[in-house]
Nucleic acid binder design. Sequence first.
DNA 1: TTTGAAGTTACGGTATTCCGTAAAGCATTT
DNA 2: AAATGCTTTACGGAATACCGTAACTTCAAA
Lengths: 221, 221
Amino acid sequence: MFEKVLIVDDHDVVNEGVLVVLKSKGIDQVHKAQYCDEAFLKIKKAAFDNQPFDLLITDLSFKKDYHESKLLSGDDLVAALRPDFPDLQIIVYSMEDRLQKVRILVNKHHINSYVCKGRKGAAELEKAIECVYNNELFLSPQVENALSSRTNLEITDYDIELIKQLSLGLSQGEISNLFEKNNITPNSLSSVEKRLNKLKDQFKANNAIHLVAIVKDLGLI
Amino acid sequence: MFEKVLIVDDHDVVNEGVLVVLKSKGIDQVHKAQYCDEAFLKIKKAAFDNQPFDLLITDLSFKKDYHESKLLSGDDLVAALRPDFPDLQIIVYSMEDRLQKVRILVNKHHINSYVCKGRKGAAELEKAIECVYNNELFLSPQVENALSSRTNLEITDYDIELIKQLSLGLSQGEISNLFEKNNITPNSLSSVEKRLNKLKDQFKANNAIHLVAIVKDLGLI
DNA sequence: TTTGAAGTTACGGTATTCCGTAAAGCATTT
DNA sequence: AAATGCTTTACGGAATACCGTAACTTCAAA
């Protein structure tokens, strides 16, 4: 089984909880970090000292505080680590359940498992650890379809920007002008309307208000 | 110190982490629940068996799943408990850091502490437990101004219902009809418009979409 | 080069929102 | 009873959203 593990989460309580899971699997050498920069340095130093980590378990989103940080998110951390540590096993453990996000992490950054925080987080984390140890990929049920290409109804950055501007109180006409000024295309009023219609379909929203409320609930803006 | 404690959070890993904190304070009789309904029943039963809980530590937001639930949130749970258990000590432990939310929980539901999930969650939770044991209120630094803040957002239940219906996709006309059917007054289209205008003023919203977005961010709906 | 598909833009009609003004209802005061 | 202030309702016009249709562009395949 893994010997030396680093867990990275800004919530100390969560770190403590993950620690319990690892202990239950008989892993004793567990280190913790609450910042991505801190995690990065710890991994670097461990490798330098010839006592490298076998496994990294990291969250994605980190609240900013007075600390100056270069790596602001788990994505940043993984991206920064991969060039130097292509063989480090990485499990991402996050609230985030957007398929797009998972897909990028797996395909581009070659993480080894993706576990969604949730009711069964502990059990899934255990399963992920087993899988990763056996060189298998584990994905939480919520996101297990992330890699099958059929699920193409993902929302683009353009869509998110559009809905965000709506939520900030701009009219469709104002958004059209804003996009034109910022060289975001398409930007005609007609296109804004059309895109909005597509989104209303996709999210089964009655109107723009409803759409914004739904997308806010999903945490996309 | 407290003897019998119930912790309620849908994430098992978080529950485990809180458990570690309690153990470190020498509290051994700790029970866990992952659903609000479950928590409610456990507290009822414990009281019935004459072995009541001294302390409840609960999250606010719970993901829905296949379980049928009556109590959907920590707010619901607290509101359901208070009539029967006015003396139960309650610590809310949540991501949520909206002052309005804290204010309502403290003033209306008489919770005994509010701790924000964050980097120092464990330390703050400990401090909260100490305070509550000494009959003092503890609030995390992020929200400690919740009660002093003179920004008295006077918003009525009527207003909240109105905005909620908007966020559910109803047009102003439909809301007018709905209110008439439910004997909620005023209910003319004109009155709905007028009230909405007042709210847009109050929250400095450009339009209805903006209003809903703002009020959602404040956690009022 | 032609063709077709997908994406973008233009336009027109209807519905709804937005906003000001005014009338009607209601309770309290004079 | 009349006057007053407050709330609710009614109405109308301008702005915006909503929704279908059609034309134009782009790009890649035939």
